[in-house]
Design a binder for these strands. Structure first.
Lengths: 194, 194
DNA sequence: CGGTCTCTTGACGGAGTTCAAAGCTAGTGG
DNA sequence: CCACTAGCTTTGAACTCCGTCAAGAGACCG
């Protein structure tokens, strides 16, 4: 169960985890099943857990005044699911996170992970690199959202994350891109002509 | 000259910097003047330096096919200026960073800062917290850009960063929000009526 | 089967863009 | 002290992309 997480950390760190470090991690990250449609986090709650996805798919979204969902993050295997703002600041979250497919995840709390940071340098390194990667991806997405028209955003997304097109339906992708499902449908039709 | 940076780090870290650590930092961060309109980074270059702004204001933006600028980041005193993607991955940047006002900054390279991370735990801690904060801010902005209409994005921005309204002209703010200067002008007119 | 979820299509409306022109402001030099 | 310029903001009119609403067509699953 913890294999993918250990591999993930080792891939990011310069020196591999020792046996005792692996044990620590196994004791700290607790396996949890989240069934399709089940909430991992609901709006208004504090996000207590940081989840590493071993299998499955999750989505993070806000809901506006009119009840419309806006997807801010999609995650599949070897990704993380968490509302960082709520997790770090201990403030109520404005987001919901739920499972789009039946999911197996590894959960840890803020206290436990801070504790691990003190004991496992490789984990600190991994966290830093992960944050950097995350930060970069967000920067790109932000730049795309203010600089590019919908069609280019979609084709960039399709190139960059082809797996996601298989795993999530179109109206979810549309919401992630900040457009409606109808607009995405029309864009795809346009693109076929070329 | 290094005072604000030392203070900044101490504010983020749990234990204050020792005298020798302060010395290390002073030797690693090199002061640099960047005059108004002068480039700190040009599109196509690799971003070699990480800048802490002691005094002044800078902007980071991309330029699209039609020559229009899209502001992705604005920074003033006690903020950082860098294209993280280029800095970390050593890839040519798609952004420009230039000084909007005469600026005094403290510069360091990737090699030097990685080196410092090994010697100053407080700096690692500061970097982690800074990344977290940055990540959170980006998440908010992203969510805003796909969830909220222009007027709400502007009023949120005005509440959150009132200093920026003083320091940057309207057309810069408009670009940062992903709208045209004309639209922002009309939005402000609307808001005055209320 | 019937129900739920998903995708498509059309007609209409609205938020925001584009283009063009004019007004405003602050700094510069005579 | 005034004239001039450059950068910034405002305004109007036409247009465009995208959202909204509504209806229908597949597809999948119990």
């Amino acid at each position: 169960m913890h294999g993918p997480l250990i591999k993930y950390i080792n891939d990011y760190a310069t020196t591999p985890l020792t046996g005792s470090e692996v044990e620590l991690i196994k004791n700290t990250f607790v396996p949890k099943r989240i069934r399709k449609k089940q909430y991992f986090l609901q709006e208004g709650e504090v996000c207590k857990y940081f989840a590493f996805i071993v299998k499955g798919a999750m989505r993070q979204y806000s809901v506006d005044d009119k009840g419309a969902e806006h997807i801010v993050q999609l995650s599949i295997e070897n990704w993380w699911a968490v509302d960082r703002e709520s997790f770090v600041m201990l403030t109520p979250s404005v987001y919901n996170i739920d499972a789009w497919e039946d999911t197996e995840a590894l959960l840890t709390t803020r206290a436990d992970i801070l504790n691990l940071y003190n004991q496992i340098p490789a984990l600190v390194e991994m966290a830093r690199k992960m944050d950097e990667k995350h930060s970069i991806a967000n920067q790109r997405r932000l730049n795309a959202s203010i600089s590019f028209p919908a069609e280019k955003r979609y084709s960039d997304f399709a190139n960059c994350y082809p797996e996601f097109l298989q795993r999530f339906p179109q109206h979810i992708i549309a919401s992630y891109l900040g457009i409606t499902k109808e607009t995405l449908s029309r864009i795809r039709k346009q693109m076929l002509k070329k």
